[in-house]
Amino acid sequence: MHLLFATSIVPDGALSSGYEIANQAIIDALRRAGVRVTVLGFGWPGKPPSDPENTILLGSLDVRTDVAPLQRKLGWLANAVASGLTFASAKLRIVSDETVRQAIAAAGPFDGYILNSVQMAAAFESLFQDRPSIFVAHNVEFRSAAENARAANGAFQRLLFRREARLLEVIERRLCRNARFVFTLADEDRAELGVASDTRSVALPLVTRSQLPAHQGKRGIDCDAALIGTWTWEPNRIGLDWFLGKVVPHLRNDFRIRIAGSVPAGVSSPHPGVTFVGRVPDAQAFVRSAAVIPLISTSGSGVQLKTIETFELGLPSVATAHSLRGIAYKPANCTMTDDPVAFARALERTVDQKVAEVDGSDFHRRQIAALDLAVAGGLARLGAGAHEVAA
């Protein structure tokens, strides 16, 4: 079977965000199932695709809103309003339908599409209807947009998120309805997207890498807690605001917290132990240097890749219930609580008691096996659809 994997940004090997990690995990699973996968989408400026022989580039594009100049943001907004598209999909309309149509034809004979998330699928929706498809819903985007609207600081930003939520609810339900099968990243998302039946969807248990690295020996602890993420993404920002505003004030003054990743302007903490370290050269080495990992998601949908990575590495953690969405197994060295004071006490207790790592390889093996089984089920549904089209 040959499938065209249509995505906004093609893999470049960096795996610097949860979205990119999930994409690679799904592509790897498809290939383990014997599928020939050709990826279609845009590349980051200056970053070649990691698999150029099986990638068709539509051009290069930096889709980050937080670093875009004002003129570009206004252009994206104008395009979104004029076209009736969401802000994220409007960013991708830098090429014509005909250009995308020619790129699809260049893939050669193929059996169906993997429509990876709503952005690309909605930007060129009419072009992906000639063959059966699997839609990958990384999140319930309309619910995330509604949560972002409630958390927005200004009236204009709130208005934009409300617009996104209205459009996304219609688009996501249509994409799910038109797809032969739907992959979600959390079981709870299936019902919210209207595809709860096992004949219509399955939740994919994910991994952050196909092979775990060899055990790296005893960890050197440089701080009490470490967090890393793309904090400019609104659901992540909401979780960080909760942690800094509700949890950190209850931590003792000598509790050392390092926060890595891009942080929006205005995010700070008066706690003397909090340090923002920006970009780090090795994310895994960074989290391994902490005595405990706070898993702080409080909004959004889908699954938390940081939770999966923490469990794969066997690191001690304290997690919100939301951080454990889509996770079937919680290791013994993970404490779950949504109460900010209890969260702070659990962090301190984990550090004081020197809670040890656990072997994450069993968790990883279970995830890989369940992922491959779920993907095989979706491919069987897609294959039946391809045969119907051929007939």
Rank of each mutant, 00 (worst) to 15 (best):
1 M>V: 11
1 M>Y: 09
3 L>Q: 03
5 F>Q: 06
5 F>S: 08
6 A>H: 02
13 G>E: 07
14 A>L: 14
16 S>K: 07
19 Y>A: 08
20 E>I: 02
30 L>P: 01
33 A>T: 09
34 G>T: 12
37 V>T: 14
39 V>C: 05
41 G>T: 10
44 W>M: 14
45 P>E: 10
46 G>R: 09
46 G>W: 07
55 T>F: 04
57 L>V: 10
57 L>D: 06
59 G>F: 13
65 T>K: 07
65 T>F: 12
65 T>W: 11
66 D>H: 10
68 A>R: 01
69 P>M: 05
73 K>C: 04
78 A>E: 12
78 A>W: 14
81 V>N: 09
83 S>N: 11
83 S>R: 13
90 A>N: 06
92 L>C: 04
94 I>Q: 13
98 E>V: 13
109 P>Q: 08
110 F>C: 03
111 D>V: 02
112 G>V: 01
114 I>F: 01
118 V>R: 00
121 A>H: 00
122 A>R: 02
126 S>Q: 12
126 S>T: 13
131 R>K: 15
131 R>W: 00
133 S>A: 15
135 F>M: 02
140 V>Q: 01
140 V>F: 00
146 A>Q: 14
150 R>L: 15
150 R>H: 12
152 A>N: 14
153 N>P: 06
153 N>R: 13
157 Q>P: 03
157 Q>M: 14
157 Q>I: 13
160 L>I: 11
169 E>H: 15
170 V>W: 06
171 I>Y: 05
171 I>H: 03
172 E>L: 10
174 R>I: 02
176 C>F: 00
177 R>C: 05
185 L>Q: 01
186 A>G: 08
191 A>P: 01
192 E>L: 12
198 D>A: 07
201 S>Y: 02
201 S>V: 02
203 A>L: 01
205 P>A: 05
211 Q>K: 09
215 H>I: 06
219 R>N: 11
220 G>L: 10
223 C>A: 14
225 A>L: 14
227 L>V: 07
231 W>F: 11
231 W>V: 00
232 T>Q: 03
233 W>N: 03
236 N>D: 05
239 G>A: 08
240 L>W: 03
243 F>D: 03
246 K>C: 13
255 F>C: 01
256 R>K: 14
259 I>H: 09
260 A>E: 07
260 A>P: 04
262 S>G: 10
263 V>H: 06
263 V>W: 09
263 V>N: 06
266 G>M: 08
274 V>K: 09
275 T>W: 11
276 F>T: 11
280 V>R: 02
282 D>W: 08
285 A>L: 10
285 A>V: 11
287 V>C: 10
291 A>M: 12
294 P>T: 11
295 L>A: 05
296 I>E: 04
297 S>L: 09
298 T>P: 10
298 T>Y: 11
299 S>L: 12
301 S>F: 08
301 S>W: 03
302 G>Q: 01
303 V>D: 00
306 K>P: 00
307 T>W: 02
314 G>S: 08
316 P>N: 09
319 A>P: 04
319 A>G: 10
320 T>P: 13
322 H>W: 15
326 G>A: 04
330 K>N: 12
330 K>V: 14
331 P>D: 08
340 P>A: 08
345 R>F: 06
351 V>C: 11
353 Q>H: 15
355 V>Q: 08
360 G>P: 03
364 H>T: 01
374 A>Y: 02
381 R>A: 14
389 V>L: 11
